[in-house]
C-alpha cells in the first residue's frame, strides 16, 4: 500500500513535470521544493549534514566551449581548474551524452556564475562535519533492488530530466545517470530524491574531493 502510494506520488510528480517540460528551455520550476533534498547526503541510513560553500563551484561545459567559458570567467576575475570528463569510460553511454566535456572547479559561489553562457551544469561545493570540501559532479549512480525495477529508474530519470547513461562499465550492478542544467536539481538533490523514493538499493551523488597522501 505504501509503495503504491509512493508510485502514485511519483506519477503525480511525473505528470507535473511533463506539463512544464521543454527540452530546449532553461530548468523548469519543479512542482516540489528541491531544496528539501539539499544540504545532506545519505550515508547508508544516516543523513550526513553538509554546509554549502560560497566560494567554490563545480561546472561542466563542452570541450569546444572552453575558450568562451574561460574568457567569460577571466572577465569577471574568476579562476578555473579544469580537466576532461571521462564519462564514456565509466558508463556504457550509448547515446554519447556528455561525451566531449570538460569539468572544472571555479573559485566562486554558484550565484555568481549563473550568467556564464555555455555551462551545461553547475553545482555547489559543500563541507562536511570534518570540514572536508566536497564538490557535486553531474554524475550519480544507482543500484537497483531488482533488475525489473529498471523501467522505474528510467521513468524517474525522464520525469526529472536526468540523463540515463546506462550501466557502469566497471561496477556493473550500478546504473550511471547525469544531471544538466535542464534537470530538476543537481546530482546531490537527485540522488537524495531517488534514494528516498525507496525504489532503489542506493543512489549516490558523484563527489569530488581532495585525496591526501599521508606523509
Amino acid at each position: 500500500m505504501k509503495k503504491f502510494a509512493m508510485l502514485l506520488g511519483l506519477a503525480v510528480v511525473c505528470v507535473g513535470f511533463s506539463t512544464c517540460r521543454d527540452k530546449n528551455s532553461e530548468k523548469p520550476e519543479p512542482p516540489i521544493d528541491m531544496t528539501q533534498y539539499d544540504n545532506y547526503y545519505m550515508y547508508y541510513e544516516e543523513k550526513i549534514e553538509l554546509e554549502k560553500l560560497n566560494n567554490k563551484s563545480y561546472i561542466l561545459f563542452e570541450n569546444k566551449d572552453i575558450q568562451v567559458v574561460s574568457q567569460q570567467l577571466t572577465d569577471i576575475g574568476i579562476e578555473m581548474e579544469a580537466w576532461p570528463l571521462n564519462i564514456s569510460n565509466s558508463a556504457e553511454n550509448p547515446n554519447g551524452y556528455l561525451k566531449n566535456c570538460t569539468q572544472a572547479v571555479v573559485y566562486v559561489g554558484i550565484e555568481e556564475i549563473n550568467e556564464i553562457k555555455k555551462l551545461i551544469y553547475i553545482a555547489p561545493f559543500y563541507t562536511d562535519l570534518s570540514r572536508e570540501e566536497i564538490g557535486i559532479t553531474a554524475e550519480l549512480s544507482v543500484v537497483l533492488k531488482r533488475e525489473s525495477d529498471l523501467p522505474k529508474l528510467k521513468q524517474l530519470c525522464e520525469n526529472n530530466r536526468v540523463l540515463f547513461l546506462g550501466k557502469d562499465t566497471i561496477r556493473t550492478e550500478y546504473y550511471i545517470l547525469a544531471c544538466t542544467q535542464a534537470s530538476m536539481g543537481n546530482a546531490l538533490q537527485m540522488a537524495n530524491l531517488f534514494y528516498e523514493t525507496g525504489l532503489f538499493e542506493t543512489a549516490i551523488p558523484g563527489f569530488i574531493t581532495t585525496i591526501h597522501p599521508i606523509n
Binding site: 565509466s90 566497471i170 569530488i208 591526501h212 597522501p213
Partner: peptide
C-alpha cells in the same frame, strides 16, 4: 593510480572513480 591534491595539475578526485 589516483590523483592527490598535491600532485601537479588539478587536485580533485572523484569518489566514484576511486571506487571504480
Amino acid at each position: 593510480s589516483i590523483k592527490y591534491d598535491a600532485d601537479p595539475g588539478d587536485g580533485w578526485t572523484s569518489s566514484a572513480d576511486i571506487a571504480r
